[in-house]
Simulated scan of single mutants.
Amino acid sequence: MSERTAQLSVRDGRWTLYVALMGVPVSQWPEHHFGAGVVPTPSERSRALTGLGFVFTDGATWAWEEYPEQPDDDTSPVRLLASIRVRSRDGSWS
């Protein structure tokens, strides 16, 4: 089964978890929207991924990165992005 990258990001105070599928239009990527507020817990993220048809790969851990909203502008607000390796539960996204 092919591994994919799941990512968690926030826009306008709302967290979104999605699975990047290369060769598939972004509008068709599986995604789950969390309510506004605090960062979803690891178990909430796991349940959302399971609902999307994915599970964590063995030994996978969340990696957090920060990036500027406006590249090359050190006064730009910073955004957070979390990533983790996942695989399809049933091979449907191989």
Rank of each mutant, 00 (worst) to 15 (best):
G23Q: 04
L8C: 02
M1A: 12
D58K: 14
Q70N: 14
T5V: 15
P42W: 00
R47P: 08
R14G: 03
E69W: 09
T41H: 05
S9T: 11
D58M: 10
D74F: 07
Y67D: 08
G51S: 01
D90A: 08
T57S: 06
R79N: 13
R47Q: 14
S94A: 15
P30T: 05
G13I: 00
S43T: 15
R14Q: 12
E69M: 05
V24C: 02
D72F: 11
S88M: 03
R4C: 10
G53C: 00
D73S: 02
D74C: 05
P25A: 04
E31R: 15
P42Q: 06
L49E: 03
D58C: 05
H33G: 13
R85D: 12
D74P: 08
Q70P: 06
W29Q: 05
Y18D: 14
A6T: 07
R47C: 11
Q7C: 11
L49M: 09
G13N: 05
H33P: 08
W64H: 10
H33S: 14
W15Y: 06
G59A: 06
V39Q: 12
E31Y: 14
W15L: 01
T50C: 10
V10K: 12
S83D: 11
W64P: 07
E65A: 11
P25T: 06
A63G: 07
G59F: 01
Q7N: 03
S9K: 13
P71N: 10
S76M: 01
W15R: 03
T75F: 04
P68V: 02
W29S: 03
E69I: 06
D72S: 07
Q28Y: 09
S76P: 01
E66C: 09
V26E: 13
T16L: 04
L49P: 05
L81V: 00
S9Y: 12
T75Y: 03
L49G: 01
P71D: 01
R45Y: 07
G53P: 02
P40I: 00
A6M: 05
T41W: 08
E69L: 08
E65G: 09
M22V: 14
G59D: 07
T57N: 00
R87F: 01
D90W: 06
R11C: 09
S27F: 09
I84S: 09
A6D: 04
L80P: 02
A82K: 03
A63T: 15
Q7W: 07
A63R: 14
E66L: 11
F34A: 00
R85K: 15
Y18R: 15
D90Y: 10
T16W: 05
L49V: 00
V39I: 11
R14I: 12
R47W: 10
S43F: 14
E65T: 13
D74H: 06
